[in-house]
Design a protein around this nucleic acid. Structure first.
Lengths: 187, 187
DNA sequence: GTCTATAATCGGATAGAC
DNA sequence: GTCTATCCGATTATAGAC
C-alpha cells in the first residue's frame, strides 16, 4: 500500500467530506476541489471513487485499533480502567481524530464486496478487542449480561454520539465515556 | 395530508427500498418499478423525491410515537415496566413495523431544511416521551446518570441494532430490549 | 392515473498535452 | 502530477397523449 504523506493528506480531506456530505453525495469534483486539483487529476492518485472510500475506511479502522491498543495496555490488570480506556479511545478516534473512523462506521455498507472482504479482518480485530475487555469486566463482576450483546449495546451507544454530540459544548468526549461506563456498572 | 390507502402502500414500498439501498441510491425508477408503474407516473403521486422521503419519515415517526404511547399507558405507575415497554416498542417499530421508523432515524439528514423543520416537532415529542420515562426510572432509583445522556445512550444502543441484529436469529426484539434494560439497571 | 418520450443536468471516468 | 476537454451513462423531472 502506498502511504506517502501526500496520499495521507488526501485521505484526510476525503474523510472530512464523506462525514459532512455522506459518501454518495460527495462528488469527485468536490473531492478534487478540496484537494486543490482538478477532477481529472484525482484519478492519478486513486483508481476510482471506491478506492478512496476503501482507503479512508482502512485508515479509520487501523487508527482505532492502534489507539485502543495503546490505551488499554497501560492497565494490564484493571478491568474497570480498561473498559473506561476503551470507551475513551473509541470517542477519541471519532471526534479528535479527524473523521476517518466515523466514515468506517457509517459508510461501511457502501464498500464494494471485494473491499469489504479485504477490510473485514481489521474491523473484526477491533471488535474482538472490545469483547476481550468486556469479558474481563464481566468476570470481575463490574457489569452483567451477555458478552456479545453488551459489547454491541455499548458500541451502539458510543457510535450514535456522532449524531448528537457537539464537541464545542460543555462536555468532553472523556466525560461521555465515563458517564456511559458509570451507567452500566453494577453498584 | 392525503392519507389514502393507495398512498400509504406507496410509502410502505418506498420505506422498504430506502432501508435496503439508502435514500441517495434509490432512484425514482426503482421506486416506480417496485410500485408497478413507470417512473413518469410517480410524479402524479408525489411532487418530487424529497416529498417521498418526508412522507416516509413522517409515517415512521408518527407510528413510533403512537406505539410507544400505547405501550406505556398500560403501566401508569410502574417505572421499570414503562422503561421496558418503551425499549420494546422502539425495537418493534424498527423491526416489526415495516421500515419507516428506520428511515426516520437513518435518513433524517437527507431531508431538506423545510421538511426537517416541519417534522422536528414529531421527533421532539418522541424524544420527550423517552426523557419522561427515563426520569421516572431515575427517581425510582432503577438507573443512574444524567437524564439526557442516559436517554441518548439508550436510544443509541437501540438504534444501532439495525446494523447488526438478525430478526431471523434466535433472539426476539423483546429479548434484546429486556437485555438492554437489564444491563443498565442498578442491582 | 398511467403511458411514452424527452429535456436538462450531473455523475464517474478517460485521453492526451504539458 | 496536473491540466483541459470530453465521453457517455444515469438521474430527476416535465409535457402531452390516452
Amino acid at each position: 500500500m502506498n502511504e506517502s504523506p501526500r496520499r495521507k493528506e488526501l485521505i484526510r480531506l476525503a474523510a472530512q467530506l464523506f462525514v459532512q456530505e455522506g459518501f454518495d453525495r460527495t462528488t469527485v469534483r468536490m473531492l478534487a476541489q478540496e484537494m486543490g486539483i482538478k477532477s481529472g487529476s484525482l484519478f492519478h492518485h486513486f483508481k476510482d471513487k471506491q478506492e478512496i472510500l476503501a482507503a479512508v475506511i482502512e485508515e479509520g479502522t487501523q487508527n482505532a485499533l492502534i489507539i485502543a491498543h495503546q490505551s488499554i495496555e497501560q492497565y494490564p490488570a484493571e478491568p474497570e480502567a480498561r473498559l473506561r480506556a476503551m470507551a475513551r479511545a473509541h470517542l477519541e478516534t471519532l471526534f479528535a481524530d479527524r473523521n476517518a473512523h466515523v466514515v468506517a462506521l457509517f459508510e461501511w455498507r457502501r464498500l464494494d464486496p471485494a473491499a469489504s472482504a479485504h477490510l473485514s479482518h481489521l474491523r473484526d480485530a477491533y471488535e474482538a478487542l472490545w469483547v476481550e475487555v468486556i469479558d474481563d469486566a464481566l468476570q470481575a463482576g463490574l457489569i452483567h449480561g451477555d458478552r456479545f450483546l453488551v459489547s454491541r449495546f455499548i458500541l451502539g451507544a458510543l457510535n450514535w454520539t456522532v449524531r448528537w454530540y457537539d464537541p464545542n459544548g460543555p462536555r468532553t468526549p472523556d466525560d461521555l465515556a465515563d458517564e456511559l461506563v458509570g451507567m452500566i456498572m453494577a453498584r
